[in-house]
Design a protein around this nucleic acid. Structure first.
Lengths: 248, 248
DNA sequence: AGCGTTACGATAACATCGATATCATCAATG
DNA sequence: CATTGATGATATCGATGTTATCGTAACGCT
């Protein structure tokens, strides 16, 4: 889409095969950069390394993308497009609230599957909003919100809803990725998602009333100050309370 | 604190004034870097620019911080410490839920007041978790959560609670900063905060007037329906709960 | 007091990176 | 066929992180 504009800036000499060749190498460079980004991280994506991996030279990157940021944006768009291509989009969901859930899950799943790409999109507060991939995702999101509003489900502004969905997903992905792998609790994602649904829609959250687990947690927190039980007893009790809290 | 360890690695020639001078220039460099970061952005923080602004030379940075990342981490810690110094911390809040709110607001406020610093801490998923400033903030957060648990308010794991609070704050700040100024709706922040509170806490404490004895009694009452512990385990647990309830 | 050690100021240098200049080559057009 | 413009290829420039090197001043030790 921005392709046409770029080529329109200067006359195109080659008619068809030329533009095709250009598009082919462009694709090759983008994929090489994406590969390098996913495999060796952001710092490994240098103009020289990308050029070498794509079998071309550094200046070609500037002829194709104008800038290194241009290359990164192309990589972003490519990653986003290929991810969306693997997912089918339901344009007429019967339950817009459930559609909101799957959309949120999709966005989060994209972040978890492409951490470096996601960091590139959403880490810098300034960048990203202008990127094509960001705008595409935002359009899909706005469509979902519009359907929610049409069904009378929306509890807040459409803009505020978009911001809330975006913020929860962003926080979910970045926090999940920053946790060591053995501390990643899937409940973080589902809880954040349901919080988001409750904040955005009129659907009442399924509130589980206080139970055994909560009581166990409370006692656990109060345990350190206690003097009734011996150290060994307290240790074992602590383990049991953990189990009770976990299975609640 | 890490200062002593560093100097302990090699014999210290200068007794006191030497170490003082070192600390003084260190402080000057950190402040120059922080100033540069806040005023001209992350890219403006180069070793040469920082050295020039601090009235010293690039190699001094490496003698003081070992690395540019070391400098940035020092800047982080400095920013975080000075921010926390302006706020008073209530170690014995009467309402732990309200304390949770103010803590969340504080974290978000820090992010909004120091966007570049915050991006440095929390934008990159990898970094940050090891930083001293991050650990300090996490300790404060865990204290708040512990008090919630002790009051019987906690609806989820302490670890999950920490992750939820962190994720919502992170999403709130980064999303807020990425919005154009005329589209920033304060309701985004309050709604996210209340969502977080609803996800983390009960509307009413599980244990009223939370004392150890009350918590023990509550758990005792809920025990019969449980299937996690074996009969023998439950029997012994029951005895201990009796003792805890009696001695409270 | 004199000596060795250590840290620090200052300059230069090296490797790498983003970005550009330059030139030869090659395909397509009139 | 001559011209034009894009592309492969190499060299280069400015900037940046980092290190080496040197001279000097301060400190502890004999």
């Amino acid at each position: 889409m921005s392709e046409g504009a770029k080529n329109g800036a200067f006359p195109v000499a080659a008619s068809e095969p030329g533009a095709d060749a250009r598009e082919v190498t462009r694709q090759r460079v983008v994929e090489a950069a994406a590969d390098l980004l996913a495999r060796e991280g952001r710092d490994a994506v240098t103009t020289r390394a990308v050029a070498a991996a794509a079998g071309t030279q550094p200046p070609a990157i500037y002829r194709l993308f104008g800038d290194k940021d241009g290359l990164l944006e192309a990589v972003l768009e490519h990653g986003h497009a290929t991810f969306l291509a693997t997912k089918h989009r339901d344009t007429h969901p019967e339950d817009p609230v459930e559609d909101l859930r799957t959309g949120w899950d999709l966005a989060v799943e994209f972040g978890l599957a492409n951490p470096e790409l996601y960091a590139l999109m959403y880490s810098d507060p300034q960048r990203g909003t202008a990127s094509a991939a960001f705008q595409a995702g935002m359009q899909i999101l706005l469509g979902r919100i519009r359907r929610l509003a049409a069904g009378g489900w929306l509890r807040v502004d459409e803009k505020l809803a978009a911001a809330l969905i975006h913020a929860t997903a962003r926080g979910a992905v970045l926090t999940w990725l920053s946790l060591p792998e053995d501390q990643r609790d899937p409940a973080l994602l589902t809880t954040l998602r349901e919080s988001m649904v409750a904040a955005v829609t009129h659907e009442q959250p399924v509130v589980q009333d206080a139970g055994l687990a909560d009581a166990a947690r409370t006692l656990q927190a109060l345990l350190p100050g206690q003097t009734t039980l011996s150290g060994a007893e307290q240790h074992l009790l602590s383990e049991w309370l953990d189990r009770l809290a976990a299975d609640g």
